[in-house]
Amino acid sequence: MDLFSDDASLVPIPIEDGELAMLARMPLPASPAQVLEQLIQETTWRAETIVLYGKRFLQPRLTAWFGEAAYTYSGLTLAPAPMTPLLNGLRSTVEDLTGHRYNSVLLNYYRDGADSMGMHSDDEPELGPAPAIASLSLGATRTFVLRHKLNKRTVKIDLRDASLLLMAGELQKYWLHGINKTAKPIGARLNLTFRYVA
């Protein structure tokens, strides 16, 4: 299966207990580098502290939350900023490609290989029992790791510049996902995860 063909439609990725699909290169209003730079420059980034296992930790990346509703995870409540014209345009394209509606987007800014995302599920109640989450990557390629909660099976996917990954069905119920640190010299990466918050 070629996940990186030039076909402009999502390619299903076979996976148990959930739905996963990928588009190698999402159509953008400008070059991926230009969109990346504009988002970095026009976003007010935050270094948030979250609570894990009763302890407070500074997240190893910068974040921003846009949309129609507040969002709470790991003891942190994010108040939404209004969608910018660029984010609204990207959301519209993502909705057309995935067939799902989104009213919010979380931006994660990985400045280099030392920035990461711990293993987790996007299973907060306000996302519903089977959320569709669309993840647009811009910038440096990073490896997306999924691990099944019961049988511990691991799936790894390289998320390249302008790729779009859709997680849906019961994926969040049965799988954890994250981005590991890397010691390799690596450039900046921006990840936009579009979701619907009730």
Rank of each mutant, 00 (worst) to 15 (best):
A64G: 10
L164T: 01
P85C: 05
T63C: 13
L78W: 14
R147L: 07
T84H: 07
D96Q: 15
R101C: 11
R142I: 00
R111Y: 09
L171H: 01
S92I: 12
E68W: 04
A81V: 05
D115H: 06
L146E: 03
P125F: 10
D161H: 12
P80K: 11
D115W: 00
S121Q: 12
L62Q: 15
L107I: 07
Y110E: 02
P85I: 02
H148Y: 04
R101V: 09
N151D: 15
N108I: 04
L97Q: 11
P85G: 06
R101K: 13
A69D: 11
R147F: 06
L150R: 15
P129E: 12
N151G: 10
F66G: 08
L97S: 10
D123M: 11
R91T: 06
L171S: 02
K156A: 10
L150Y: 08
L165H: 05
T72I: 06
G75E: 11
R142E: 02
A132Q: 07
G139L: 02
L138T: 09
T154L: 08
L87H: 09
D161S: 15
F144Q: 00
G139M: 00
W65H: 14
E126V: 07
D158Q: 15
D123I: 06
Y71E: 01
M119N: 07
R101E: 09
S104M: 04
F144T: 00
S121L: 13
S137F: 08
E170Q: 15
Y71R: 05
N151S: 13
R91E: 06
G169R: 05
A140C: 10
D112I: 03
T63M: 14
G89N: 12
L86N: 04
T98Q: 09
